[in-house]
Nucleic acid binder design. Structure first.
Lengths: 220, 220
DNA sequence: GCCTCGCATGTGTGATCACAATCCGGTATG
DNA sequence: CATACCGGATTGTGATCACACATGCGAGGC
């Protein structure tokens, strides 16, 4: 069964140029944790794997480094970021700040169909866990949150949040393989219950703990 | 007298390549309100004004559009963003979310020298108002806030905030010329007082009102 | 006088190239 | 056996070019 995917927020619309295809492709690889921290990339390599020259690859990389999805070494070499604990905690606290706010804004507009959709994504998330598939797990987990936040009608805030997700992508992948979850994240149920009850305070709390819980047990 | 300027947070350090010079130059022009909303730019024009070819200009523009400092029209034309009221309010609410948090984090580490520095920047801000100089006004105003937030030791959060400032740059310029302030922003005094008193709640409130006040009276 | 069509100009895009810096092998040396 | 060194291969950078397309101005028609 095909999971229902909510469209991403940042890249607004169609716009199919070569560098844009490369950008979206790389962005997805990073955000969904297909790359582990410290993975080295080369412009020529990126270009070849997307069937384009260096020029569009360079532009895509510029965009992604601007969003923190990739880092430049001093000599201009590009790689996925290796975050220290301090930075991870800071990014987690930003999530803990933004996500309850987005959830709260979405709450007023959340109708039953949305909750059903989230429920279905959450089941796909549980399947990914059973299948020990880290990429699917990360993807469906973010999908779950994004589906809610899209209802907040706050594109700028969602864009900022996706930037944070992007920075955490490779780290989340490394984290996942380290602790090998076997059960679904318990807070997703709480989020859904709070949504159904229309309880703002409970929703904020559930989102906050879901975010901090996932990243707390990390010792790099 | 030369105002004391706190270094920006995002572009970490030295790194002097051609595209980086262009990036920093454009970024400053946008953030400080040297460009009004809707100003059209061309890659060749940018390149010429910085003495480089199109290539570095293109990369700088990509970075800046990724941060929301510039927008692409459908045909790839680049211009400073023209924000609608909805977007302005959203960005203001993001500032109202992030800035009290950053201020609160800085409060614990704020010593007297920092407050003195902010006082001095605030005087420069008042001078810019008397001189009817919008760019200096915006620059010193942001400098005032950034000087405080740098103490929060939260580079990722400050980076996100600067992205928001960047998006608001041209709009703040347009706003400034519309309402022609004649007095210093009243909330800066409250911020300084809360800092001196070490009062977290008062500081959060003062920052929040300073941010929302400045952008509330805007009807585009 | 106003609108429409068409062409000249301007503009972004992507490919290619030359170049300098960096990295990474192996080899020689202590 | 470990370490320093050297040279070839790899990599990012910036310039330049050809091309397709959008834009806008001017001429012609209504």
């Amino acid at each position: 069964m095909q999971p229902i995917l909510a469209r991403s927020a940042l890249p607004d619309a169609p716009a199919q140029s070569a560098h844009d295809r490369v950008y979206r492709g790389l962005r997805q690889q990073v955000m969904h944790g297909e790359l582990t921290p410290g993975t080295a990339l080369t412009l020529r390599g990126i270009g070849k794997s997307f069937g384009v020259s260096m020029t569009p690859a360079r532009e895509a990389v510029r965009r992604l480094t601007a969003e923190g999805a990739l880092t430049f070494s001093a000599s201009g070499r590009v790689a996925t970021p290796e975050l220290n604990n301090e930075r991870i905690e800071e990014l987690a606290s930003i999530r803990a700040l933004l996500e309850p706010e987005l959830g709260s804004r979405a709450l007023r507009r959340a109708h039953l169909a949305l909750i059903d959709r989230m429920e279905s994504i959450n089941e796909a998330n549980a399947r990914a866990i059973r299948a020990q598939n880290p990429v699917d797990y990360i993807r469906t987990n973010l999908e779950f949150h994004r589906t809610l936040y899209l209802r907040a009608q706050s594109p700028a805030m969602l864009g900022l949040l996706e930037t944070v997700w992007l920075q955490l992508g490779p780290t989340m992948r490394a984290l996942y393989t380290r602790l090998r979850r076997t059960a679904a994240p318990p807070h997703h149920r709480l989020i859904l219950e709070a949504l159904r009850a229309g309880d703002d305070a409970a929703l904020r709390l559930a989102l906050r703990t879901d975010v901090t819980q996932g990243l707390r047990h990390l010792q790099v």
